[in-house]
Amino acid sequence: MSGRRAVVVEDDEDLRDLVEHVLRGAGLETSGAETGEDGVRLVRDLQPDLVTLDVQLPDLLGTEVCRQVRQFSDAYVMMITSRTDEVDRLLALDLGADDYLAKPFSPKELSARVSALLRRPRMATRGGSEADEVVQAGGGLVLVPVRQVAMLDGEPVPLTPTEVDLLAALAREPGEPQDRSVLVAAVWGGDFIESDFLIDVHVASLHRKLRKAGSGTDRIRTVAGTAYVLTPQ
C-alpha cells in the first residue's frame, strides 16, 4: 500500500486519532478533518485513495459529504456510523459509499475492511483504452466497467462504481445464478464482514435505478435465497 493516502473525516478527536493510527499501520499516509466542508476540501486537494467518513458531523451529514465527494473523486469511501437504522446504510451505499462500519468497532476489524477495499481495482488503476471491455447486459443495457459507465439505449444510467461492477459480474453470466460469495469475490476481491447485507443492499439499489431508467421491473432475481441471476432480455 506504499504511497497511498487516506482522509479521515471525524469530529471526535480521539476516534479520528484512532482511525488514523490504524490506517498508518496499514501503510497509508493520513490527513484528518473534523468537519464535512474541510473533508470535501481535503479530498479535492489531496485526491486520496481512501476516505473514512463519519455520518454525524457538526456541519454536514456524512451522506452529503459522500455525495459531493463522488462528483470529483473515485476514492474508496467507508462510512463510519453509530446509527443502526438500515435506511442510513442504504442511503450511504446508494450515494456511492463502498462500505460502512458501525460503531463500536475494533482496530482489527477496521484494518481488515480497509485492506479488503484497497484490493479492489479502481478506474484509475485498471488501465485500459478505448477498446476496454464492453459488457452487453441485454435490453439495451451496456456497461463499460473500467470506466464505470452504464448506458441504457444510449442514455447514461446513474450507477455507483460498485453497482456497475456488480451488474457487470451478473451480466457476464446472463441467466446463470451466482452465489453471493462468488459475487463478493468478483466485485470486492475478498470477503467482507456482513457481505450478505452489502450484496443485498446493492442489488436493491440496482432494482430501483434500473426500474427508474426503464430497464424493466425484474432484471435481477433472487434464487433460493442465496444467489442472484440477471435475466436476459
Rank of each mutant, 00 (worst) to 15 (best):
D196L: 08
D165K: 04
D85F: 03
E13K: 14
D54V: 05
V134R: 08
R221P: 07
F105I: 07
E130F: 15
A112Y: 02
A168P: 13
A92T: 06
T125P: 07
A97W: 01
L46Y: 07
P161W: 10
T81F: 02
V43T: 00
V40C: 15
G140N: 14
Q148G: 05
C66E: 04
P156N: 13
D132Q: 12
E10T: 09
G62S: 13
Q233S: 13
L60V: 09
V43S: 00
T84Q: 04
E34F: 11
R24E: 14
P107D: 01
L117N: 00
F72V: 07
L18F: 13
G140S: 07
A6C: 13
K212R: 10
R89N: 09
G36P: 05
D218K: 15
D179T: 08
L141P: 14
L53E: 03
G175N: 13
G189C: 11
V184M: 09
V9M: 06
L183F: 08
Y76G: 02
D11Q: 00
L90E: 06
V87F: 05
R67A: 04
T222Q: 09
P104M: 04
E163G: 02
H207R: 07
R24I: 02
A131K: 11
L159N: 02
R44C: 09
M78V: 06
A92F: 02
R67H: 08
G128V: 05
S181I: 07
R120K: 13
K108W: 12
V187Y: 14
E29L: 12
P232T: 07
G190I: 06
V87L: 08
G39I: 14
G154T: 12
Q136T: 07
K108E: 14
E173W: 07
Y100L: 12
P48A: 15
Q233A: 14
E10I: 03
E130C: 04
G138K: 12
S115H: 12
S73F: 15
E37W: 03
V164F: 03
T222I: 04
V164S: 03
A185L: 10
V223D: 10
A26C: 12
R41E: 11
E194K: 13
A6H: 03
D38L: 14
E133Y: 10
Q47I: 09
M151A: 12
R16Y: 11
G3F: 03
L230P: 08
H207C: 07
E64C: 09
R24D: 06
G214D: 04
V9W: 13
L152W: 05
I220K: 04
L91H: 10
A169C: 11
V135Y: 07
A213G: 11
Q233N: 15
G189S: 01
Q71C: 12
P158L: 01
A33I: 00
A171T: 10
L91V: 11
Y100V: 02
Q68C: 10
F72R: 06
V187L: 00
A168C: 15
G216T: 01
P156A: 12
S73Q: 09
V7S: 01
V187H: 01
V182R: 14
A6L: 05
I220A: 12
L170Y: 03
L93R: 01
T160S: 04
S106A: 13
R221H: 01
T231P: 09
V65N: 02
L183I: 02
A213R: 03
L101G: 11
L117G: 02
L118R: 00
D179W: 04
H202L: 08
A112T: 00
V146W: 05
